[in-house]
Design a protein around this nucleic acid. Sequence first.
DNA 1: ACCCAGGGTCATA
DNA 2: TATGACCATGGG
Length: 218
Amino acid sequence: MRLKGVYQSLKIKYGRQKWWPADSRFEVMVGAILTQNTAWVNVERALNNLKQANALSAKAIIKSNHDVLAQWLKPSGYFNVKAERLKHFCQWYLDHHSYDGLKYKHTAKLREMLLSVKGVGPETADDILLYAFNRKVFVVDTYTRRLFSRLGLVDGEIDYESLRAIFENELHAETVKTFNEYHALIVMHGKEVCKTSPLCDECCLQGICKQRDVSAAS
DNA sequence: ACCCAGGGTCATA
DNA sequence: TATGACCATGGG
């Protein structure tokens, strides 16, 4: 395993990332739900709709009409599903007295609580833990699995928790800031390079990133 | 016209 | 437990 080395390569190539792009912790949480299987540019439109309607708060979302909320969310896709998910999340959030009511909970407990919210799965929970609560949790996404299976460092079919454990064990000595940057760099790399260059023949990891992953290159 | 994007839930076997 | 169907917009 050479996870730190990959991090260094990505950091040299792309520099410091500024994640999570948001004006508040709550906006991070909403964005984490809206970005499920959705391009970020579309999420920004939905977030802007909420801002313009003065509805980017848990209370406003809770009391908004479903169809109205869905209209605001429309650009981010799955708007009916996401309207429900946002309401579930906001209800949970208010029930636990918002950020100040949650910030002292242990990470494992907080993660368990987040996963109990309907519509919040592992990646969304970890986005929220890392980027809103500043916890040292490694966010695994499709880019992560694809890149590291291509690098020959993990099995492409590895499940979420196992892959997260690999990262967190190997990077246990690193800081929250590194976890923050690392995931952002993986996404940047996935969007800018590997997407258009499946065999990584132009990528910054050339020399490391050989085409060992046949399935992902087809 | 097709594929995919910073996933997750639910029904079925 | 493990697949498959489903959700839905916008950009390439």
